[in-house]
């Protein structure tokens, strides 16, 4: 059951920043993640600052340069159904469509999706884990079948977002606004590994707001997809997933981006898989090499060794679909 808190609806980005700079304040977009965390007592909030009325954070639109600007409040349903995104950025549209359930996609925003808290059952449950300021990660000796095979250190959760790997594979940038002004950074530097700080997932400081996402124009000959493996057909996070974006011309891969979900505490770019594809024809040999490269340096825990053949098979499956 929710504890008591004050509720404020921000009238402007500036007001949202002011209101949420105070300790104990939390930003509310669609609330599909935040309210669950509060109800389950994962963390508390004295003040909820709703940004849901901020028009300037809404909408999906083409930019003058031929790219796209996606407001942080664009819903997952909006993104999944957007004709231009579906056609030119299929990895993103598919990732948004693969998240959660229809109701949650209507309610959940892309900003919230990137900033949602981990789904690790120790973090969400009644365990004083490292991410909550405790001194241990319970997954190390415990039930770690859903945990990471890359990038773990002090915390072994996997980043829950489906759209994050897609945006990473699209080399997206995010715009952040705070008291000190605005900055635009590559999404790749937005996420924070536990070795840097196990208590937060991203670069946002208190009072900072993610306001929009920027996409470059698609490369010529670009194709992409998001492939998600899950334990049931809906209402389920990725067991593992792969966002792949390839630029192919004259039969050769000019540029490859492979980003994985369900394998690391951040959306995980596999430069090894990308290197195995670059300059190659997308044939069975290259596909097999890339799939093997994707898991080459994986370090499984006691219960998640299956993720190695699984990621390999999934990448193979996804690349085969792009080749077909």
């Amino acid at each position: 059951m929710l504890s008591q808190f004050a509720y404020r609806k921000a009238g402007s980005v500036q007001e949202a920043i002011e209101l949420s700079s105070r300790p104990g304040a939390r930003i509310l977009a669609g609330g599909s993640d935040l309210l669950g965390c509060l109800r389950d007592g994962v963390f508390s909030a004295d003040r909820i600052v709703s940004i849901s009325g901020l028009k300037e954070l809404k909408g999906v639109a083409a930019t003058a340069g031929g790219g796209m600007r996606i407001g942080a409040l664009a819903t997952l349903a909006e993104i999944a159904g957007h004709p231009r995104l579906r056609q030119a950025y299929p990895a993103l549209a598919q990732a948004a469509a693969a998240a959660a359930s229809p109701q949650l996609r209507n309610q959940g925003t892309i900003g919230g999706n990137l900033c949602q808290r981990p789904r690790c059952w120790y973090f969400r449950g009644d365990f004083p884990c490292a991410r909550k300021g405790g001194d241990t990660c319970y997954a190390i000796a415990g039930e770690n079948q859903l945990h990471c095979i890359f990038g773990g250190e002090g915390c072994y959760m996997v980043h829950p977002s489906d759209t994050a790997p897609a945006l990473l594979a699209l080399d997206a940038k995010v715009r952040i606004q705070g008291r000190k002004g605005a900055r635009t950074i590559p999404l790749a530097s937005f996420f924070v590994l536990p070795s840097v700080d196990p208590r937060r997932e991203n670069a946002l400081a208190p009072g900072e707001l993610l306001t929009e996402i920027l996409l470059d124009p698609p490369e010529p000959g670009a194709r992409g997809l998001y492939r998600k493996v899950r334990e049931r057909g809906a209402f389920d996070f990725a067991l593992v997933g792969a966002a792949i974006v390839l630029a192919i011309s004259e039969g050769t891969v000019k540029k490859a981006r492979v980003a994985l979900s369900g394998v690391a505490p951040v959306p995980w770019r596999s430069e090894e898989a990308e290197a195995a594809l670059a300059g190659k024809k997308l044939d069975q040999q290259a596909i097999a090499a890339a799939a093997a490269a994707a898991v080459k340096d994986a370090e499984p825990l006691s219960g998640n060794g299956y993720k190695i053949p699984l990621v390999r098979g999934m990448v193979e499956d996804a690349l085969s679909a792009l080749a077909g």
Binding site: W121, G125, G142, E143, E231, R232, A234, F235, D236, F237
Partner: peptide
């Protein structure tokens, strides 16, 4: 295919005592 109670071996506590982590089948 989907359902199983998971108890944490270290603490004996159930880690999936909710409707996301304990998976009953959906229409799909």
């Amino acid at each position: 295919m989907t359902e199983q109670r998971i108890l944490d071996r270290e603490t004996g506590k159930m880690v999936n005592a909710n409707w996301h982590d304990y998976k009953i089948p959906t229409m799909k």
